[in-house]
């Protein structure tokens, strides 16, 4: 880990200022469960680390309006223990998939959304787009865990967050603070598929921080997340699906289906949503939805299985919600 200077401001404005481009290369530190590994691997080499730990305004989880406000620095453990969050089944199911109590205790919700891809080429120093001597390593390399959607290149990694698909399916937004003030956007808009080495996988400016996540009321929605995970021990899902369904007369009237760990961004599938509308919510409509979601999948040399796993995740999530 390269040495750095450290600052822990007490409000978001000073944090945004501390992140000013004049300060050199900066990084935001929340729980550190991802950032510290990135620093140790020299994947990120900031000269200044700005810690959010002293900004009390970023903490806490509470009801707000009919919905839920999650402070950026609320931990996964906070989320799981929160009464206010109890109605958001799919979000809690996703949070439970982060199985290590130590990660739950330290990792924050915003950190989960903004954690960097776990692609092993990226983590071993070959860059976000995983290249060696200009050549893309993933398509002909070890790509069993890589993307099956949105993988036309140059990005092949998968977004690692399990909370993001759930939050997107719940219609959540994030508040982002920068030196010029706050802006609000949908969680989905936090992400992008980078098109060059110059781009990151999220849309934040280096001096912006997420301050809170707002989830609208889930009343009237049945929600569920299903994760396909090999081990109970701290492990990454191979595929997840979060669904939110509104039912009318026993039929799906409105559906949101978002897949995780299958594409460089959380993957919302309008195909699956269309397939569900007007159907009863059960495993058989779920299979159809899963297949629809995977119709456009373009698996790489080693990850064909993920198409099946994602299909099953959708099927089971729909079954659970139904």
């Amino acid at each position: 880990m390269q040495n750095f200077e450290y600052i822990a401001p007490i409000n978001t404005l000073s944090a945004a200022q501390a992140l000013s481009p004049d300060a050199g290369v900066t990084a935001v530190l929340a729980g550190g469960t991802d950032l510290l590994s990135l620093l140790k691997q020299h994947v990120e080499t900031p000269t200044r680390v700005v810690s959010l730990r002293n900004i009390s305004a970023l903490r806490g989880i509470s009801k707000r309006g009919g919905g839920l406000r999650i402070g950026a620095m609320a931990t996964v453990e906070d989320l799981l223990g929160s009464k206010a969050a109890a109605p958001y089944e799919s979000l809690l199911q996703a949070a439970r998939g982060i199985t290590a109590p130590q990660v739950r205790a330290m990792g924050t919700v915003a950190g989960d959304l903004l954690q960097r891809p776990r692609c092993w080429y990226f983590r071993n120093g070959y860059g976000l787009l995983a290249k060696s001597e200009g050549k893309a390593l993933v398509p002909s390399g070890e790509n069993r865990y890589h993307a099956i959607l949105g993988n036309k290149g140059p990005a092949y990694f998968v977004n690692a967050s399990s909370l993001a698909p759930a939050l997107i399916s719940l219609g959540a937004t994030v508040s982002v603070a920068g030196p010029e003030g706050e802006r609000e956007m949908s969680v989905a808009d936090l992400y992008r598929i980078p098109s060059s080495d110059a781009e990151r996988e999220n849309t934040l400016a280096p001096n912006e921080i997420v301050t809170e996540i707002n989830v609208p009321s889930a009343s009237g929605w049945s929600t569920a997340t299903y994760e396909v995970r090999q081990r109970q021990l701290l492990d990454w899902p191979l595929a997840t699906a979060s669904v939110a369904l509104r039912m009318r007369g026993g039929k799906v009237s409105d559906a949101r289906v978002v897949l995780g760990h299958v594409a460089p961004i959380p993957w919302r599938s309008s195909e699956a949503e269309t397939a569900l509308k007007g159907k009863a919510a059960n495993e058989s409509s779920g299979v159809e939805a899963g297949k629809a979601a995977m119709a456009a999948a373009t698996p790489l040399s080693q990850n064909k299985a993920k198409v099946q796993l994602a299909t099953v995740a959708v099927k089971r999530a729909v079954g659970m919600a139904g």
Binding site: R118, Y145, Q230, R231, Q232, L233, L234, W236
Partner: peptide, 12 residues
């Protein structure tokens, strides 16, 4: 590493 070099835990 001990992330993708996978070993079982007490629940596995």
């Amino acid at each position: 590493d001990m992330e993708f070099y996978k070993l079982p835990g007490a629940a596995d």
